[in-house]
Amino acid sequence: MPVPIGNTLGIFSDNIVRRRSILPLSTKRITHWSNGFSLPHGGSTILYTGQMYQLIPFINSMSHQLGKFEDSWITRFFGIGRFFNKMLNLTKFMAFPSSKEKAAYDQPIRNIVECLHKAGSEFGYLYEHDYYSGALAYDEGLDDAFKRHAKFVYNVWKEHNVKTLITIDPHTTNIVRSIYPHYIEDFDIEVKNYMEILAENPPPVVQHLHETVTVHDPCLYARSESIVEQPRKLLRNIGIEVQETELSGALANCCGGPLESLFPKKSLLIAKKRVDQLLDCASTIITSCPICMANLKRVTPETHSVHDISEYLVKSYSPDFK
């Protein structure tokens, strides 16, 4: 028996409505990456993480559990689980990522902030008000929950007089730039992705990196937000040679990540297919999406590696940054 779709989505929907995230995390966990930066609280321009990088270790851990349940008798009890989850956040007891994994997904956010500072960007952060965007709720067709949540998040930005958001992942960028305006009347906040900012005004290169890599384009950057050339320009600028797969840019195959909640096994099959295409070009894969990174890493052999683009950028712009 596959993972029961209705009850699993029901849990996500309840969490979004009651706890403002599909997998509610503590404020301490969401903002942990910001330690040591002293970013101003608020401001007209803010960095908006949408919690995507912070959520990945928890999604990974939960998908691992769901993968075990898929096709087992335990799926019969998801309905009871949903009932109790309304009162008590049960998803908290299903995901136990290691400290190492949490730190690994905090690091790209830290790298991005460091790169933006090197480019001279000034921005604040909303800390406890850095809410999830609702991206998964939208994708799964949970429109009623998504609509309420999007209005709530937008009102928080308006209360803090936010004029510009800097986004750092494809799902959040797409949802706030291209989807929110359809659900929120008079949406008037500018949304810029950090790679667009860096590509327009690249920081000085301190160290050139002489490596050959291949780039996996996240679907939403490539086919919805036209962010294809920017990562390549940034990589070339720091001395990296990009070997292109036949299926790149607008024709890039998906990593399979969107299926991990409901069909964990199918998700891995798609990832394997994509990794095989990429490793035909180079042994190092670079991507700019936490979901792609997590899913591709699951099936990449130990002799090869998958990295977030920010690891390379920060190594070049700020080699001593940790």
Binding site: I5, Y138, E140, G141, D143, C219, L251, N253, P258, L262
Partner: peptide, 29 residues
Amino acid sequence: YSCLLCRMCEENCPAGVHIAENVRSLRTY
């Protein structure tokens, strides 16, 4: 619910059908 919403089909659809949005509408229903 297996559709990745990756929009590869839309990118290549000669009739310009919004396939992913249609699938999403079915999920909503």
